[in-house]
Amino acid sequence: MSIKQISIFLENKPGMLKRMTDVLASHDINIRALSLADTKDFGIVRMLVNDVYVATNILKEENFIASLTPVLAYEISDKAGDLNRLLDKFAAVNVNIEYMYAFAGKKGAYMIFRVADTKKAEAALNGQGLKSLTQDEIADV
């Protein structure tokens, strides 16, 4: 199952990120994973949070532009060569990765992937012996 990542448009200027984290903090939103794509003028914050619906709604109320993007998250072992093994499987079924980032949780390490066709990639990777994360697990792992 793919999970929902929040993508947020931010202007590239001092204080913008803090404005966003203020909103999240005041509503007790816990950020589980975060990555930032930046250009000279603007950036896109991508993150997984404990409550994606509350987070999206409060950000929109505060005039942020936020959208939900489906991503895939797989567990990897915290040892040399495991990311390589995971990417082997992507390559084997010919899935192109648009971007990826990682987070280390309480129980293990996880890689998050954005691919062009989430459903197709999911189907292709199913049965390859990978442990995927579901939306409900985000808050706890």
């Binding site: 990542q5 993508s7 448009f9 794509a37 930046d38 250009t39 003028d41 603007f42 896109i44 991508r46 532009i65 959208s67 993007t69 648009e98 954005r114």
Partner: peptide, 18 residues
Amino acid sequence: EMTPDMFTDNVGEIDERR
């Protein structure tokens, strides 16, 4: 001003629109 309709998760696409 950016609008929700114009926003995508893809940096390259936004820059293309700009």
